[in-house]
Protein backbone atom coordinates (compact mmCIF):
# COMPACT_ATOMS: atom_id res chain seq x y z
CA UNK A 1 0.00 0.00 0.00
CA UNK A 2 2.74 2.46 0.94
CA UNK A 3 4.72 1.59 -2.17
CA UNK A 4 1.68 2.11 -4.39
CA UNK A 5 1.02 5.47 -2.71
CA UNK A 6 4.65 6.53 -3.17
CA UNK A 7 4.62 5.50 -6.83
CA UNK A 8 1.39 7.42 -7.52
CA UNK A 9 2.74 10.55 -5.82
CA UNK A 10 6.06 10.48 -7.70
CA UNK A 11 4.25 9.94 -11.02
CA UNK A 12 1.97 12.87 -10.20
CA UNK A 13 4.93 15.15 -9.46
CA UNK A 14 6.47 14.10 -12.79
CA UNK A 15 3.30 15.09 -14.67
CA UNK A 16 3.16 18.39 -12.74
CA UNK A 17 6.72 19.07 -13.90
CA UNK A 18 5.76 18.24 -17.51
CA UNK A 19 2.78 20.58 -17.27
CA UNK A 20 4.86 23.48 -15.96
CA UNK A 21 7.56 22.91 -18.59
CA UNK A 22 4.84 22.87 -21.23
CA UNK A 23 3.36 26.12 -19.94
CA UNK A 24 6.80 27.70 -20.15
CA UNK A 25 7.95 26.26 -23.48
CA UNK A 26 4.95 26.21 -25.84
CA UNK A 27 4.86 29.06 -28.36
CA UNK A 28 1.33 30.44 -27.95
CA UNK A 29 -1.61 30.59 -25.61
CA UNK A 30 -3.68 27.75 -27.09
CA UNK A 31 -0.87 25.22 -27.03
CA UNK A 32 -0.08 26.21 -23.45
CA UNK A 33 -3.66 25.30 -22.60
CA UNK A 34 -2.98 21.75 -23.77
CA UNK A 35 -0.14 21.36 -21.29
CA UNK A 36 -1.99 23.07 -18.46
CA UNK A 37 -5.38 21.47 -18.96
CA UNK A 38 -4.33 17.85 -19.37
CA UNK A 39 -1.19 17.38 -17.31
CA UNK A 40 -2.45 19.35 -14.35
CA UNK A 41 -5.71 17.47 -13.93
CA UNK A 42 -4.12 14.03 -14.25
CA UNK A 43 -1.21 14.93 -11.96
CA UNK A 44 -3.48 16.38 -9.29
CA UNK A 45 -5.69 13.29 -9.34
CA UNK A 46 -2.67 10.97 -9.09
CA UNK A 47 -1.12 12.79 -6.14
CA UNK A 48 -4.45 13.12 -4.33
CA UNK A 49 -5.27 9.42 -4.73
CA UNK A 50 -1.75 8.62 -3.53
CA UNK A 51 -2.25 10.70 -0.39
CA UNK A 52 -5.64 9.04 0.20
CA UNK A 53 -3.99 5.59 0.00
CA UNK A 54 -1.22 6.69 2.38
CA UNK A 55 -3.84 7.99 4.77
CA UNK A 56 -5.66 4.65 4.70
CA UNK A 57 -2.49 2.74 5.64
CA UNK A 58 -3.38 2.81 9.35
CA UNK A 59 -7.05 1.95 9.10
CA UNK A 60 -9.72 3.57 11.32
CA UNK A 61 -13.22 4.99 10.72
CA UNK A 62 -12.10 8.62 10.99
CA UNK A 63 -9.25 7.98 8.54
CA UNK A 64 -11.79 6.43 6.16
CA UNK A 65 -13.87 9.61 6.32
CA UNK A 66 -10.82 11.77 5.66
CA UNK A 67 -9.90 9.57 2.69
CA UNK A 68 -13.42 10.03 1.31
CA UNK A 69 -13.00 13.78 1.57
CA UNK A 70 -9.65 13.60 -0.22
CA UNK A 71 -11.25 11.54 -3.01
CA UNK A 72 -14.04 14.14 -3.23
CA UNK A 73 -11.36 16.75 -3.95
CA UNK A 74 -9.99 14.47 -6.69
CA UNK A 75 -13.43 14.10 -8.30
CA UNK A 76 -14.00 17.85 -8.12
CA UNK A 77 -10.64 18.66 -9.72
CA UNK A 78 -11.39 16.09 -12.43
CA UNK A 79 -14.64 17.85 -13.36
CA UNK A 80 -13.60 21.45 -12.74
CA UNK A 81 -10.26 21.56 -14.52
CA UNK A 82 -11.58 20.89 -18.07
CA UNK A 83 -14.45 23.30 -17.44
CA UNK A 84 -12.05 26.08 -16.48
CA UNK A 85 -10.03 25.25 -19.60
CA UNK A 86 -13.15 25.58 -21.79
CA UNK A 87 -13.99 28.94 -20.25
CA UNK A 88 -10.51 30.38 -20.73
CA UNK A 89 -10.22 29.05 -24.30
CA UNK A 90 -13.56 30.51 -25.30
CA UNK A 91 -12.62 33.86 -23.79
CA UNK A 92 -9.37 33.81 -25.78
CA UNK A 93 -11.17 32.97 -29.04
CA UNK A 94 -13.75 35.71 -28.59
CA UNK A 95 -11.17 38.33 -27.59
CA UNK A 96 -9.09 37.22 -30.57
CA UNK A 97 -5.73 36.07 -29.26
CA UNK A 98 -3.62 35.20 -32.30
CA UNK A 99 -2.94 31.47 -32.66
CA UNK A 100 0.54 30.31 -33.59
CA UNK A 101 0.69 28.35 -36.84
CA UNK A 102 3.42 26.57 -38.71
CA UNK A 103 3.64 29.29 -41.37
CA UNK A 104 4.73 32.02 -38.96
CA UNK A 105 7.89 30.18 -38.18
CA UNK A 106 10.94 31.82 -39.83
CA UNK A 107 12.58 29.23 -42.04
Amino acid sequence: MLWAAGFLIVAGIFFFAVGVLGVLRFPDFYTRLHAAGKCDSLAAVLVIVGIALYNLADFSPSNLLVSFKILAIAAFVFIASPTATHAVTEAALIIGVEPWTKKDEPQ
Binding site: G12, F16, G19, V20, V23, F29, R32, L33, A36, D40, S41, A44, V47, I48, I51, I70, I73, V77, S81, A84, V88, A91, A92, I95, V97
Partner: peptide, 23 residues
Protein backbone atom coordinates in the same frame (compact mmCIF):
# COMPACT_ATOMS: atom_id res chain seq x y z
CA UNK B 1 2.34 38.09 -22.74
CA UNK B 2 -1.50 38.26 -22.70
CA UNK B 3 -3.80 38.63 -19.72
CA UNK B 4 -5.22 35.15 -20.34
CA UNK B 5 -1.76 33.63 -19.94
CA UNK B 6 -1.69 35.15 -16.49
CA UNK B 7 -5.12 33.69 -15.64
CA UNK B 8 -3.95 30.29 -16.86
CA UNK B 9 -0.78 30.51 -14.77
CA UNK B 10 -2.86 31.43 -11.75
CA UNK B 11 -5.11 28.41 -12.33
CA UNK B 12 -2.12 26.07 -12.56
CA UNK B 13 -0.63 27.50 -9.37
CA UNK B 14 -3.99 27.07 -7.65
CA UNK B 15 -4.19 23.38 -8.54
CA UNK B 16 -0.67 22.89 -7.19
CA UNK B 17 -1.59 24.74 -4.00
CA UNK B 18 -4.51 22.36 -3.40
CA UNK B 19 -2.13 19.40 -3.57
CA UNK B 20 0.52 21.20 -1.53
CA UNK B 21 -2.00 21.83 1.27
CA UNK B 22 -2.70 18.10 1.46
CA UNK B 23 1.03 17.34 1.57
Amino acid sequence: PTILDRILGGNVIGTKTTVLLLI
